[in-house]
Every structure is written in C-alpha cells, then in structure tokens.
Computed example of a mutant assay.
Amino acid sequence: MARAGVIVVGLCLVLYFVLTGQWAFLYLTSGEPIGIAMGAALIVLPLIGAWAILREVQFGIQAERLGTKLDAEGGMPPAETELTPSGRIAKADAEPIVQRYAAEAEAAADDWRARYRLGVVQDAAGRRKDARASIRDAIRLAKDAPGP
C-alpha cells in the first residue's frame, strides 16, 4: 500500500514538473524582472522538493531493507506489552521499554541491529523523531559494518 502511494505521489510530481515548467517558461520569457524571478523560483523550488522526496524514499528503502534483514534473523523486538488500537505502546509502559533498548544500543554502539531495534521501539512509543534518528544511525552503521 505504501509503495502504491509512492508511485501516485511520483506521478503527481511528474505532472507538477510539467505544468510548473510551462509556467516557468512563460514567466522567464515575459521580459519583466518580477516574471523572470518567479520563473526562476518555479524551476528551483520544485527541484528542492524533489530532492527532499528522493531523500525520504531512499530512507524508506534502506530502513525497509534493514528491517527485513533483522526480521529474517529473528532480531525484531517482541511485543512486550498490550498495544493501543493504533499499534502504539501505552504511555505508562513506554518509558521503561524505551530506556532498556536505549541502554542496549549504547552498550553496543557499533551494532546497527541494536540501534534499529531502538528505533522500532521508539516508533511504537510514539517518538517518531527519535525513531527516525535511531534508524538513520542504524543505516549509517550498517553501511560502515564490514562483511556482506
């Protein structure tokens, strides 16, 4: 389902580039300084947006690859407590679990698996920003790790 969403967003982005390119051309050829500035902005700003989307897609692919590998190894964190209907850890149970996985990740600072598990638990606890940072660290560590 997420891949279908990425494809739809990608197609919308292509359509956006075509339409924006047409407007940019019209503004750039207007001869007016404001029009030229707007035309330049219509070229630069979508490129920045495309770069940001590309980075997010790369992150998603790399995170999914590591998650699949960790799951195949049987290393994903087990559900230790009752989850809320949204799939989150109840707030009362979250802090001790996150702290335990954080301590494990600190003890094994070069192990991408420990950092990835921490990210999964942080995400389940509703700490999305921390989870993304931990998974980014796991991706970096996995790239730096020797071996296959």
Rank of each mutant, 00 (worst) to 15 (best):
M1C: 06
M1I: 10
R3I: 14
R3H: 11
A4R: 11
G5L: 11
G5K: 14
V6N: 10
V6C: 03
L11M: 12
L15C: 14
F17A: 05
V18R: 10
G21T: 12
Q22Y: 12
Q22R: 14
W23V: 02
A24C: 09
A24H: 04
F25Q: 07
L28I: 11
T29M: 09
T29K: 09
S30Q: 06
G31C: 08
E32L: 11
P33L: 07
A37Y: 11
G39L: 01
A40E: 08
A40M: 10
L42P: 03
L42Y: 14
L42E: 07
L45C: 10
L45P: 10
L45R: 10
P46G: 12
A50E: 03
V57G: 02
V57L: 13
Q58C: 05
I61N: 07
I61E: 03
Q62C: 04
A63V: 03
E64W: 10
K69W: 01
L70A: 08
E73Y: 00
G74L: 06
M76I: 00
P77H: 04
P78I: 02
A79N: 06
A79W: 01
T81L: 02
T81G: 01
T84R: 10
T84W: 00
G87K: 13
A90E: 12
K91R: 09
A94S: 10
I97C: 05
I97A: 06
I97N: 05
A103C: 02
E106F: 00
E106W: 00
A107T: 02
A108F: 01
A108V: 02
A109I: 03
D111R: 04
D111I: 08
R117D: 03
V120S: 02
V120D: 02
V120L: 06
V121I: 15
Q122M: 11
R128S: 12
R128E: 15
K129N: 11
K129W: 14
R132T: 14
R132Y: 13
A133P: 15
A133Y: 08
A133T: 15
I135R: 14
I135P: 02
I139N: 06
L141R: 11
A142R: 11
D144P: 00
A145D: 07
